[in-house]
């Protein structure tokens, strides 16, 4: 188990920056532009890692800890996700709860880092991030509850790895709803449209981009890679839910992950270019819809 899990994790760590790039490229294609090359994020990361950092005089260690937290938490959370469709690198019963806790840590420090600068731009981003989290969190937990109820397991590795087949045999409708709900949660967590707008730098529309406005150099590289990794984590959760690969031979299951993630990224791009970005007051409604879908999945299963 751990061999293929390690391979799959390594693959995801390598291709993670491609996902936002692919989504943006899809948007560019649909809107008739050429767009940035697919490998641009890697060049950006290399360039940023070599640049020097600029820190605001108002900031403290919290500002410097934020990028580290935003990178460290998805890195650790990645160990809990079964990328190869069979099992995760590490895991324990109830690690789904810890998964949410890790993401909360990343979010908390990102928001604190934003507030540390004293800029009202960053405050605005932090404020929105926190408000929307109060809908993301129940949606995520309802998804986990539906997954736990359909598979009888409490760890991500077991839920989405070993037992998901049983879930599809017993409650396909619930799992389909969970998949869609997780997709919406992914859109929000990865700061993609129609929740957020990754393309603009206008404070009125942004959430994530505005919170990281003051970070530079290696810090910004950490932030960019960390949020790409978070995108990949949630995309993998969606893929694992909707395309169970328990019965597949492991090399195939690992190999299938790459096109599946690419499909998710393209889908994100398609959604981003076909739906207008939601007004900020509508975002909670959108997220509440995701939570409601997951809740329906739970209700159908509890029956």
């Amino acid at each position: 188990m751990s061999g293929s899990a390690t391979t799959a994790l390594a693959v995801v760590l390598i291709i993670a920056p491609l996902l936002p790039s692919l989504a943006s490229r899809t948007v560019a294609f649909i809107t008739g532009r050429r767009g940035a090359p697919l490998l641009q994020p890697y060049r950006d990361l290399v360039k940023l890692l070599g640049k020097r950092a600029v820190y605001s005089r108002t900031t403290t260690g919290v500002f410097r800890a934020a990028p580290i937290a935003v990178l460290a938490t998805p890195l650790l959370a990645a160990a809990l996700v079964p990328f190869d469709g069979h099992g995760s690198l590490a895991g324990f019963a109830g690690d789904a709860i810890a998964f949410a806790g890790l993401l909360a840590l990343g979010r908390m420090l990102l928001a604190l880092g934003g507030l540390d600068t004293g800029s009202s731009f960053e405050g605005m981003g932090a404020s929105r991030e926190l408000a929307f989290a109060s809908f993301i969190e129940p949606a995520l937990f309802l998804c986990f509850a539906a997954l736990a109820l359909t598979t009888g397991e409490l760890s991500l590795g077991r839920m989405l790895g070993g037992a998901i087949d049983r879930g599809w045999a017993q409650a396909p409708a619930s799992l389909a709803m969970v998949g869609v709900s997780l997709f919406v949660v992914m859109l929000a967590e990865a700061s993609r449209g129609p929740v957020d707008d990754p393309a603009t730098h206008l404070e009125l529309t942004m959430i994530h981009e505005v919170t990281i406005l003051d970070h530079s150099g290696p810090d910004l590289a950490f932030l960019l890679y960390g949020s790409a990794l978070k995108f990949a984590l949630f995309a993998a959760l969606v893929v694992d839910t909707l395309m169970p690969r328990t019965g597949w031979p492991t090399p195939l299951a690992v190999a299938a992950l790459i096109p599946a993630l690419a499909v998710v990224a393209v889908l994100v791009g398609v959604i981003e270019s076909t739906f207008a970005r939601l007004r900020l007051v509508q975002v909670p409604q959108f997220l509440a819809g995701a939570a409601a879908l997951a809740a329906l999945g739970v209700i159908l299963r509890v029956r």
Partner: peptide, 29 residues
Amino acid sequence: LLGIVAVAMTAAFSVACYVRLIGIGLLGV
């Protein structure tokens, strides 16, 4: 199940609450 939803929302609120207490109270200028 309702408890799970309530505790999840509480967790999100309390993260927001302490970001506010620390971020506004302790950080910045």
